[in-house]
């Protein structure tokens, strides 16, 4: 018999607990989408030559939209339990296929934005804390304040105007140049390029990632820097750091092993929460950079009242968010073994 450790049990519990959550999210998305005005068939038919009322009614019947809402819900939930996400009304393709195509692009962008944010935010935060009240600290605080305030779409457009149009260093938009795509393994182009050892593809994909990841990640970097700075300041003033120093531990070791590790806990919490907002903020950045991700699919689907697509995407977002939070909680226990999963 397999003996499970405490952590494994907790993880399984948490995963099981997401099932009712997923159902609740599905239900909310289902009801709310139908509560907003507008009709997918009407939007799909657009304008132009006569589409008779009979023709529209026939389409509605074909899609099951003429049924009462509770009956539609039953049909939807039954399909959902079978793992069937349905068929896009406007694009006439399986929703699962659309999401499978778009999700890797969104995840890749969000992860790169997060990496960018951490790579910039943590060092700035740590140095600001160590050089507390110096010019560096003040400037970095001021800059991160501005960073938080600038919207990603503005940063994106300015980035394109400066780095693509004026200097010509980076491509304006898209994910990779035509003909450069690495063999499809995960759908994350950078990862696929690494796995297949295709360095030209990696370089090209990274060049395409620079601007959108920076535009999306800069705001997060600013928040990370501020939180890291204040928790670092807290920890640096604590008794155990004083004790470590008194013991004669060299200063770099005090900073990294003793202080930073503990100071990271609020940052990890923040990263978990920000990841969700990165997925959401994606919608605008994806539109600007022509990034073929889930955000654009969802925005289109909302305007077109493409119910099955919106429902599925909302669920994907919710589950991603829950998953990231679970990982965050696991990270706590690594950073601070005293903490247990609650």
């Amino acid at each position: 018999m397999i003996r499970l450790g405490r952590v494994q049990v907790k993880v399984i519990e948490r995963v099981v607990a997401t099932i009712p959550l997923a159902l609740a999210v599905a239900l909310a998305a289902f009801v709310l989408m139908r509560a907003i005005p507008g009709d997918p068939v009407d939007i799909m038919m657009g304008e132009g030559a006569s589409s008779s009322e009979e023709e529209m009614a026939a389409l509605r019947t074909g899609l099951g939209l003429d049924q009462p809402i509770h009956r539609q819900l039953v049909v939807y939930l039954k399909a959902l339990l079978r793992g069937d996400l349905g068929y896009s009304i406007v694009r006439s393709r399986p929703v699962a296929q659309m999401i499978r195509e778009a999700l890797p692009a969104t995840i890749e962008l969000a992860m790169c934005a997060m990496l960018f944010a951490l790579a910039l935010g943590i060092p700035v935060g740590v140095v600001s804390a160590l050089k507390h009240n110096t010019a560096f600290d003040r400037v970095s605080t001021a800059v991160s304040f501005i960073g938080v305030s600038l919207p990603a779409f503005w940063l994106g457009i300015v980035g394109i105007l400066v780095f693509s149009m004026t200097f010509g260093w980076l491509p304006t938009s898209g994910r990779i140049a035509y003909g450069m795509e690495p063999r499809h393994i995960t759908g994350l182009l950078t990862l696929d390029a690494l796995l297949t050892g295709d360095m030209t593809a990696l370089g090209n994909a990274l060049r395409h990632l620079c601007l959108p990841a920076a535009a999306l990640g800069l705001g997060v970097a600013a928040v990370v820097a501020r939180v890291t700075r204040s928790s670092m300041l807290d920890v640096l003033g604590s008794d155990y750091v004083l004790f470590a120093r008194a013991k004669g531990v060299p200063e770099p070791a005090v900073t990294t092993r003793h202080a930073l590790r503990n100071a990271m806990i609020p940052t990890v919490t923040l990263v978990g929460l920000q990841f969700g907002s990165l997925l959401g903020g994606n919608m605008i950045v994806e539109t600007i950079f022509g990034w073929p991700g889930l955000g654009r699919v969802v925005v289109d689907a909302i305007f077109a009242r493409d119910y099955p697509v919106v429902q599925a995407a909302v669920m994907v977002y919710a589950l991603t968010f829950v998953g990231v939070n679970l990982i965050t909680d696991l990270l706590y226990t690594v950073l601070d073994p005293k903490m247990a999963l609650e």
Partner: peptide
């Protein structure tokens, strides 16, 4: 021939200017 989706007008103009 390649058709690229570029919803943002500013970005379309930038891409045309750079020759993309």
């Amino acid at each position: 021939a390649i058709f690229r989706m570029m919803p943002d007008p500013t970005v379309r103009v930038a891409a045309l200017k750079t020759g993309e």
